[in-house]
Design a protein around this nucleic acid. Structure first.
Lengths: 345, 345
DNA sequence: TGTTAGCACTCATCAGCTTCGAGTGCTAAT
DNA sequence: ATTAGCACTCGAAGCTGATGAGTGCTAACA
């Protein structure tokens, strides 16, 4: 059986109605919805077909129909097809220029959650290759040095260390030169024993400072590539949707959102999504995360140049407003990119 | 009427039982609990008295009794009195040495939530007076400068700015000297027009770089003193306690925990708590936060020297294990302090 | 042949009712 | 002062019938 014009109209009507109310929708409702163009009986026949084809399901015998995962999938694919026709009307999402990317991301998640009324998730950038760009030692106290480490992609880390061996201004300057001339452009793997012993030799009596600094630098780089930062916001928005907020499910979902390690699968994909937009839609069972089998998840990958990539995601009920979410995400990506570029200008 | 020995025993028994089960406890249960030392009828009489005195309440006519806020308060006060007798047995909470305080605090919150099975909250330090300690400009790219700002208390902030006016190495060095000699030890209020114009004069042709840097520094300092960082963890632990996890309450509580601005009142207090331990216990209505009227909240103020103060808090059901929470918090404070001192050593 | 009206049927929901049992308060006996 | 006994209360849980939304099927219709 094929999906003819009328079946499509009815299917869309069912989905739209269910999105509004969250209640199963019956044949009479649809009949009214299409201005009595067809009677409820006709609709019933068509619905029966649609059910057989797997686009809608009946929660129980005498209830209306609700869209199945397949139904939503059809609907979303329709939207993606139509997307170019609906250009304008992009609502400006204010992003203030802020000094740190992390802070931008947190605010973005909050913004997104507020704007959509779903839960938002955003992963901090994964830095592809942690090359050292710049190291600077400064004295902050008599016996304390500040190590500033700048990695490729302008990721900055600070460490304060205590030194027994107190360097004077000239020695500090020389140490800076020594560090930068030997380490710049290297990844952590490339800092091997050979490099280290050469540096120590050059450092002469201050070899132990070299050791100290290298140890800290190594820790900084390792720490960064190890733990993936994920921020969530608006998790409690799920209480706005009765079908998600029964105690069992809500608890499970919220717990998953709290334990970011469980969200890895959502942001790990290098997938470029449908049409290479970097946007992906997981409906119900399609989701890679167990606890989200009753939700839909929309993720978008952002890329800020220099191999800095991350993911933004929206988690909501299956009846989420896909149109709005997709539009918002697209807008956001554009603005995020623009903002970041401006900042680094 | 006075609280005699037996009444106290019974009250404690009621509270202990209720803590375990979360269910109203009846006279027979207590009678068994005290090895039938008194019959259930006797207990009933005493319970009747205790109710009249306000230490326990009956949720409905034919249910057992549960402790009232006043009852809990009595119990907590008892514990605080006895605290010195129970010294040892402090369970070691591993705190790894990490480079940034923020990171330590986040992990601490997680640790605390896991350890207690309640929700944990921790506020980043409030820096009393944001005095500038050190500024360093470095070149990271042809046309980009890294500004490292170190504030009193070794709070470090980084900013990358784009400069049109490209300085050579010598000029950069001079600029660093200029900045540090003029600004060190000043608070933001003290950086007035007078200071600025003097610096500009000294900078000569690079006056605009001074402007740029000062603008960034001002923003950094302001940003830090403005938004108080609060981290929460284990919020979903509240689902473990039926009396908190009905949908209405859970939603409200979780929302409050998500919107950190609502938690200000919990961490703002300069109060030194009972016995000057810096620990405070809010039971039910005593809580300054609306959504926590059905919970108990225990907060502890930590102080890491140099005016760096913050708050750690535990949010749980009224029947929380106060003894354990108080002990854990005390231990934690000690260890946090120790760790931090070691780090700055 | 596609559409519609009509009707019997299903089933979730809800209000009202009963039963059950945990727990109380009171009284009288010890 | 303590306890046994008993009538009483009330929430929880289970049952029942009414209600109504919604379906599937059949027969009539255009």
């Amino acid at each position: 059986m094929e999906l003819d014009e009328r079946k499509i109209t009815i299917l869309k009507a069912i989905i739209k109605n269910y999105m509004d109310t969250g209640e199963p929708v019956g044949s009479r409702t649809i009949s009214k919805y299409v201005d009595n163009k067809w009677s409820s009986a006709t609709i019933r026949n068509e619905m029966s077909d649609l059910e057989e084809m797997g686009y809608i399901v009946q929660p129980h015998t005498s209830a209306g129909r609700i869209p199945s995962d397949k139904g939503y999938r059809f609907y979303v694919d329709q939207i993606v097809l139509e997307k170019d026709s609906e250009a304008a009307e992009v609502q400006e999402l204010m992003i203030k220029r802020i000094d740190r990317l992390e802070s931008v991301l947190k605010r973005l998640a909050k913004l997104l959650a507020n704007d959509t009324n779903y839960a938002a998730l955003i992963s901090g950038p994964r830095y592809q290759q942690n090359k050292l760009k710049f190291i600077q030692l400064s004295r902050v106290d008599e016996d304390k040095l500040l190590i500033v480490t700048v990695l490729e992609g302008n990721l900055i880390k600070n460490t304060i260390v205590h030194v027994k061996d107190i360097l004077n201004e000239d020695e500090l300057l020389n140490m800076n030169i020594l560090l930068n001339s030997n380490l710049n452009g290297l990844t952590i793997e490339e800092i091997n024993l050979d490099v280290i012993s050469r540096m120590k030799q050059q450092a002469g009596s201050h070899a132990d400072v070299v050791d100290l600094v290298l140890e800290q630098v190594a820790e900084v780089i390792r720490a960064d590539s190890e733990d993936l930062q994920i921020y969530t916001s608006g998790a409690t928005n799920i209480f706005k949707y009765p079908e998600l907020s029964d105690n069992q499910k809500a608890s499970e979902l919220l717990q998953t959102l709290e334990h970011t390690e469980l969200l890895k699968d959502l942001v790990d994909t290098g997938d470029d999504g449908e049409n290479g937009t970097g946007i992906q839609v997981y409906i119900g069972e399609e989701s890679p995360v167990q606890a989200m089998r009753d939700c839909s998840v929309v993720t978008a990958n952002y890329e800020l140049g220099e191999g800095i990539r991350g993911t933004i995601g929206i988690i909501g009920p299956k009846r989420m407003d896909y149109e709005k979410v997709l539009k918002t995400l697209r807008t956001l990506m554009t603005q995020l990119e623009a903002t970041f570029k401006k900042e680094e200008r």
